[in-house]
Simulated assay, not measured.
Amino acid sequence: MSYAAIHPDWEKPRSNMVDGYSLEMTAKEIEGLREAAPLIRPGTQIAVTFLPGEEMEQRVEAAVLVRQLGFEPIVHLSARRLTSEAELDKYLADITGKAGVKRVFIIAGDPPEPEGPYSTSLEIIETGLLEKYGIQIVGVGGHPEGHPNNSKDELWDWMERKLAAVRAHGMTPLIVTQFAFDDDAIVEWVGEMRSRGIDVPVRLGVPGPAGIKRLLGFAKRCGVGASASVMKKYGISLTNLIGSAGPDKLVDSLDKKLSDAEHGRVRLHFYPFGALTASAEWINKYDAKHS
C-alpha cells in the first residue's frame, strides 16, 4: 500500500506523535479556521463535519475555504441525514467541483430513522457516486471504546465489509476513530485490528485542549467512555470540573506504546471542539518540545 496516498508524511516513520496530524471543524467555524490558519501546517488535512443545523451551502463553503487556505479538505457524509440520492449527487458535484475534494469520511449518523434512502455508510459506498466524482480516499469509522448500538463483533464485521467495498470500488480506505481518552483501550484496539489482518492506515481521534465540562459533555454526547479511572489517567478529576485539560498525557502515552513495526501506520486526528486556534497552538508546542 502507498501510504503517500493518505498523507505524504506517512511514507516515513514518524519523528513524534503529531507528525501528519489532521484536524476537524464544523461548517460554522469558518472564522475560527481563518484565525487558526497561520498556526496550522500547510497541507494539513482538515475534516468538515456533517452536523444537524447546517446548510449544504455552508459545508461547501467551508470545504472551499480549507482548500483556499492551503489545506486538504476531508468532507464528512452522514448517511442517515441525506434526504435523497439527488442530494448526495449534487453535494459530491459541489465539493469536488468547487473545492477539489478527493477525500471523504462516511458515517451512518445519529438519527434513529434515516431522513432519506441511506441507513448505513456502506450504502453510500455502494452507490458508485464516490468514484463517479473522483473521490480517491474513503474514511470509515473506528470505535476503540465500543459503540452503544453495536457489539464488538458487529463493529469488526461492519469495518471489514466497508473496507472491502471501498477497495472493490477502486478507492483507498482509511480508518478514523471516534475520540477516546483511554490509551490502553486505544492501543489494544489497534493491536486487535492488526491481528485480524486489517492493514489499513489509521487516524486515532484524540480531544484537543478544552474546558473540562465541555470535554465531558462531548464525551457523553458521543458515547465515549468517561469513567473516573479513565479521566484520572487523562488528568481530569470528576470531583473538580473547573479548568481546562489538554491531551498531553494521552499523546505521550500513545507515543510510547505505539510503534510502526507492531501497529502499522498510525497518526492522530484532533477534535478541537470549537477551539481550532488552541488546538493548533497545542500541537505546535508539542512538536517543538519533541522534535
Rank of each mutant, 00 (worst) to 15 (best):
N284A: 12
Y21E: 02
V60L: 12
Q58S: 14
P52Q: 03
V101C: 13
R81N: 04
V230T: 15
K249M: 09
P52E: 07
E188S: 10
A275R: 14
P13Q: 05
I175T: 10
P207W: 09
A93K: 11
Q45Y: 05
R265M: 15
I95V: 15
R14C: 07
R103M: 09
N16D: 11
E131P: 00
P13W: 04
I124T: 05
K90G: 09
R214D: 14
T127L: 05
E29Y: 03
Q45S: 14
L268M: 12
R59C: 06
W10A: 11
T83I: 06
E55W: 13
P148C: 01
P272D: 09
E61C: 02
V48S: 05
Y133T: 11
D260G: 02
A99R: 01
I137C: 01
A278F: 00
L130F: 07
P111K: 09
V266C: 12
I242F: 08
F179H: 04
K12S: 14
G128P: 08
G139A: 10
L23Q: 03
D182M: 01
F181D: 00
D9F: 11
N240V: 04
G264H: 04
L163C: 06
G32P: 05
I106L: 14
A245C: 13
D182R: 00
V101Y: 09
V266T: 09
K232W: 12
G235W: 06
E72V: 15
K285T: 12
V190Q: 01
N16G: 04
A5P: 00
L92S: 02
A261R: 13
T44N: 05
G100Y: 06
Y91R: 09
D183L: 06
G208Q: 08
A86I: 12
A62R: 03
L51N: 12
V64N: 01
A99H: 04
L92T: 07
W282L: 10
K285R: 15
E24L: 13
E131A: 10
T172H: 10
G116P: 08
A99C: 10
S78K: 04
I40K: 04
L254Q: 01
K132E: 14
E11A: 14
E145Q: 13
R194K: 12
S195W: 05
Q45R: 14
D255N: 14
M171A: 11
A27E: 08
T239H: 11
D153V: 11
R196Y: 01
D89F: 06
G97D: 01
A108M: 06
W156G: 03
R41M: 12
H290L: 11
L241Q: 02
D184V: 15
E123L: 05
E281K: 15
L155K: 00
G211P: 00
G170Y: 08
G208C: 07
G141A: 15
A280E: 03
P38F: 03
D9Y: 12
Q58N: 08
A5H: 06
C222I: 03
V75N: 03
I106Q: 03
N149M: 13
V60D: 06
V202P: 03
Y271T: 11
I242N: 12
I175L: 10
I106M: 08
L163A: 06
P38R: 02
G109D: 04
A180E: 07
I46P: 01
E29M: 14
Y21V: 08
L65W: 06
S195C: 09
R221Q: 13
L238G: 02
L204H: 09
A210M: 12
F71M: 11
A4I: 09
E160I: 00
G243W: 11
A4E: 13
T120R: 14
